[in-house]
Write a protein that binds this DNA or RNA. Sequence first.
DNA 1: GTTATTGCCTAAAGGCATTAGGAACGAGGG
DNA 2: CCCTCGTTCCTAATGCCTTTAGGCAATAAC
Lengths: 202, 202
Amino acid sequence: MVARAGLSRDRIVEAAAELADEVGFAQVTLSAVARRFGVQVASLYAHVDGADDLRAGVACLALEELADTAGGALAGRSGRDALVVLGDVYRDYAAAHPGRYDAARFPLDPATAAASAGPRLAELTRAVLRGYHLGRADETHAVRLLGSVFHGFTSLEAAGGFSHSRPASSTSWARILDGLDVLLRSWAADAPDHSHARRTTR
Amino acid sequence: MVARAGLSRDRIVEAAAELADEVGFAQVTLSAVARRFGVQVASLYAHVDGADDLRAGVACLALEELADTAGGALAGRSGRDALVVLGDVYRDYAAAHPGRYDAARFPLDPATAAASAGPRLAELTRAVLRGYHLGRADETHAVRLLGSVFHGFTSLEAAGGFSHSRPASSTSWARILDGLDVLLRSWAADAPDHSHARRTTR
DNA sequence: GTTATTGCCTAAAGGCATTAGGAACGAGGG
DNA sequence: CCCTCGTTCCTAATGCCTTTAGGCAATAAC
């Protein structure tokens, strides 16, 4: 008699993601999602394996969205351009979807982490760095540096750390991306690219 | 008849901080703290104004400890030295007290934030940067850059982001601090220090 | 049109947060 | 000595969230 709500894991996770953006990732709760669907809480257990699984689902969704937009935005770009674009993808995503962005840092167990879009994201930043022709070790250091700056800046910005003081955080962001570019260039000078050297070995 | 537990706000917050380091900041709960003291939950309300106030207390404690150790470690140092020491203070604190470190990023309402040791910490990083003789604007950008890198790196490291791959994260950390030093030097070259220029104006 | 599956429900138990009000402990004045 | 009085801690009750178990009804297969 009563119309079915038409639940599915995807629809539930999607609703949870919207909820996260509205009220914060920490407030994402099975009860709230059930209310949103006009459904009893227990019904969700048919599709989701409890509250943590729901949060993990939102995390995976966020990682996927991030990787997708990064992949699209990065197409055809390299060097400084690519660096700026990648940074902006993170920052813009965090601004547009604060709850989802928070979710992206939810600790996943190794198996789901490996199956998530996380590795794809890492690969994308490695691709950006390839334009700087760093040495093997420096490339890893650089991946970590970029991850730290992107994550650190966006999360501090989201937490309001920069909001009540001049200059505008966007100005700092631009200056910081600039700085990273010159920093990576200096690393490139330190350690010439081994993979492309000896091209003329004959 | 029953011996009193001798509760006080400080003792409760301290216990909550220990708990945070043991089981994670998110798991810091009035119930758990009450259990630790062998006391009923409601008894805590005489000293603490609810769960959020308890968390805020832990946050303030963490900020204070951070600012204290940073202040001590920074004494008599400047330039690259000071930069490395400040970074290490953050990283070491996060490693030794993961729960407290997490707490330090708990959003405080403006009043308590202003009264906390947060501003003192910001002042300390500004002091470190004074050694690089940046322009006014660049100094702010640099404060944000350092905050982003320190926070981003330590939190990614704590989340296990770097743990399962070579090279060791300590190596990256050293390389990154080095990089920040050269980056700040390049900014100094861009915009000479106005406060000390024109010394010879006559 | 009957059967099997699945989707959603009710019911129940357990944990955490919060408030209200009561009892026992400690200290100080009579 | 004892009597208040403030403080410390308690019991009790309410409400929200999670999780599990078991039941009925809508959909899909035949």
